[in-house]
C-alpha cells in the first residue's frame, strides 16, 4: 500500500485542459486587465460599508450639487450626497444583480439544456418548444408584469432577469451536449454502465463548459445593462437604494448643469462592461480547442 501511495505521489502531474487555458489566458493582456479590474471592483463592492467616505443616505441639502473637490472626490448630487459613496453602493447592487441573475440563468439553463440535449426525442422537443415559447414572449412586458404583481424588490429583480436570460444558455448547452453525446467517450461511459446522471455530470457538462463560461462573461454585462435600463424606467431599484443604472438615469436628467453626475457612474458601468467583454473574448480564445497545443 505504501508503495502504491508513493507511486501516485511521484507520478508526474498532467496539465489539464483548464490549466492549459489558464496559461493561454494569462498571455492575453486585455483579458488580464479585465480580470484585474473585475477583481478590484468586486473587492471594493464587498468592502464598501467600511471604505465609503460617507453614509450612503447622508444628505447635505445646503451643499447641493458641487463639482469634484478634495472633500468629495467625485462631487455631490443635487441633494448633496457624495457621488463616490453613491457609486460604490450602486456598484454593489449592479454587480450583485449581474452575478446573481447570471448564476440563476446558469443553473437553470445548463441543467435544462443538458437534460434536453442528452434525452433527445420527445423530451427534447417538449423542453425546447417551451424555451421557444418563452423566447417569443416580450420579456420586457414579462418583467414589468412581475414587478407590478409582486412589488418591486431586489430579489425578485434577480430572479426575473435570470429567468429570462437562461433561455440562450439552455440552447447553447443543448447544442453542446448533442454534439458531445455522439462522441465515443460518452458511448464508452454508457457501455461501462454508468448511470445517466453521472454521465451528464462527469462526462458531458465539464466538456460543454467552455462556451458556457464565455457566454456567462458576456451575459453579466448584458444583465447589468438590463438592470440599468429597468432602473432608468423606474422599474428596478428603489431609492434610497441605488444602482449605476439609477445614477445614470438621474445624471441624464441634469446632464447639462451637472455633467459629473452622469460621467462618473457612466464611466464605472462602461469600465465594467469593457472589462467583462475583454475577459470574455480572452476566455473564448483560451478555451478554444483549436488554439490548444496538440
Amino acid at each position: 500500500m505504501s508503495d502504491v501511495a508513493s507511486t501516485l505521489e511521484y507520478a508526474e502531474a498532467g496539465t489539464s485542459l483548464w490549466q492549459d487555458a489558464w496559461v493561454r489566458l494569462r498571455r492575453n493582456r486585455l483579458a488580464v486587465f479585465g480580470l484585474v479590474v473585475m477583481a478590484t471592483l468586486i473587492v471594493l463592492a464587498l468592502l464598501t460599508p467600511w471604505i465609503a467616505p460617507y453614509a450612503y443616505d447622508a444628505q447635505d441639502l445646503d451643499l447641493g450639487a458641487t463639482p469634484p473637490s478634495a472633500a468629495h472626490w467625485l462631487g455631490t448630487d443635487v441633494f448633496g450626497r457624495d457621488m463616490l459613496t453613491q457609486i460604490l453602493y450602486g456598484g454593489r447592487i449592479s454587480l450583485a444583480v449581474g452575478f446573481v441573475a447570471t448564476a440563476v440563468a446558469l443553473l437553470i439553463g445548463v441543467t435544462w439544456g443538458a437534460i434536453a440535449g442528452y434525452a433527445g426525442g420527445k423530451v427534447d422537443a417538449v423542453m425546447m418548444r417551451l424555451v421557444d415559447i418563452l423566447y417569443a414572449l416580450p420579456f420586457m412586458i414579462f418583467i414589468v408584469l412581475l414587478m407590478v404583481v409582486f412589488g418591486r424588490n431586489v430579489l425578485l429583480l434577480f430572479l426575473a432577469i435570470g429567468a429570462v436570460e437562461w433561455l440562450t444558455m439552455a440552447r447553447i448547452m443543448r447544442g453542446q451536449v448533442q454534439s458531445l453525446r455522439q462522441q465515443e467517450f460518452v458511448e464508452a461511459a454508457i457501455s461501462i454502465g454508468l448511470p445517466t446522471t453521472t454521465i451528464i455530470r462527469r462526462h458531458l457538462v465539464p466538456n460543454a463548459l467552455g462556451p458556457i463560461i464565455v457566454y456567462t462573461t458576456l451575459t453579466i454585462p448584458q444583465v447589468m445593462l438590463l438592470e440599468a435600463f429597468l432602473s432608468f424606467l423606474g422599474l428596478g431599484i428603489q431609492p434610497p437604494q441605488t444602482s449605476w443604472g439609477l445614477l445614470i438615469s438621474y445624471g441624464a436628467e441634469t446632464m447639462e448643469e451637472y455633467p459629473w453626475l452622469l460621467i462618473f457612474p457612466g464611466a464605472a458601468l462602461t469600465l465594467t462592461l469593457f472589462s467583462l467583454n475583454f475577459l470574455g473574448d480572452g476566455l473564448r480564445d483560451a478555451l478554444d480547442v483549436r488554439g490548444a497545443k496538440d
Binding site: 489539464s16 485542459l17 465515443e184 467517450f185 458511448e187 457501455s191 461501462i192 462527469r202 462526462h203 465539464p206
Partner: peptide, 28 residues
C-alpha cells in the same frame, strides 16, 4: 455491461479529455 466492453476506433474521441488516466481507469 460489466461483462461486455468496447474498444473504439478513434483514441482521440474515446477518452474524456477532462479526466486523467487515473480517473478514467478508476471509474469502471
Amino acid at each position: 455491461r460489466r461483462r461486455m466492453q468496447m474498444i473504439f476506433q478513434d483514441p482521440f474521441a474515446s477518452l474524456n479529455p477532462r479526466m486523467t488516466v487515473y480517473d478514467t481507469l478508476a471509474e469502471p
